[in-house]
């Protein structure tokens, strides 16, 4: 069977509507009856990636494919790219502008949180061209993950 395919635009710099894409995906997963813990992990991961596209990259788009056993989420932007992914993945590292910090973003927790919640994460980024995050969340994860970076 074909997966259910959802697409959402992500508007850059628009804090107000930021989160609409992940919220739309969450609604879909809930309607489908996916187990609540997987819904939560998928929406947390997608929300953080969506916010990053808004804050750091001037927006982009989200592509979501839902299968019977997993959801695959691609968040693509045409922003500045991430020069040092290793650094960006560290907890607390952030280049968020003041405007974003005033809104409560910029703790440098987003990427680590995506890593924690995803079963698989690929970051494809080119400086000057943009970034694409591919997040995979399986619906029934057999065993709990190894301790996250915070442990």
């Amino acid at each position: 069977m074909l997966p259910v395919h959802l697409q959402f635009p992500i508007r850059g710099g628009d804090f107000h509507s930021a989160g609409e894409a992940s919220s739309g995906m969450k609604k879909a997963l809930s309607k489908l009856g996916v187990d609540p813990s997987a819904v939560k992990r998928a929406s947390v991961a997608m929300y953080e990636a969506e916010i990053n596209a808004v804050i750091h990259a001037g927006g982009g788009e989200a592509d979501v494919e839902i299968f019977a056993d997993r959801v695959s989420i691609v968040i693509r932007d045409h922003g500045p790219g991430i020069p040092d992914v290793g650094l960006a993945m560290q907890e607390g590292w952030s280049t968020a502008p003041d405007a974003a910090r005033e809104m409560g973003f910029g703790a440098g927790m987003g990427l680590p949180n995506i890593q924690r919640n995803a079963d698989d994460l690929t970051i494809d980024t080119r400086v000057g061209e943009g970034t694409a995050l591919t997040i995979l969340v399986r619906f029934h994860r057999p065993a709990p993950t190894a301790p996250g970076p915070e442990a």
Binding site: M1, P3, V4, S30, K31, L32, G33, V34, A68, F139
Partner: peptide
């Protein structure tokens, strides 16, 4: 589950499509 399309995920996917 009152908001779910179907108790069976495969069927729910088909309905969702």
């Amino acid at each position: 589950p009152a908001l779910q399309l179907d108790a069976d995920l495969e069927l729910a996917l088909a309905k969702y499509e």
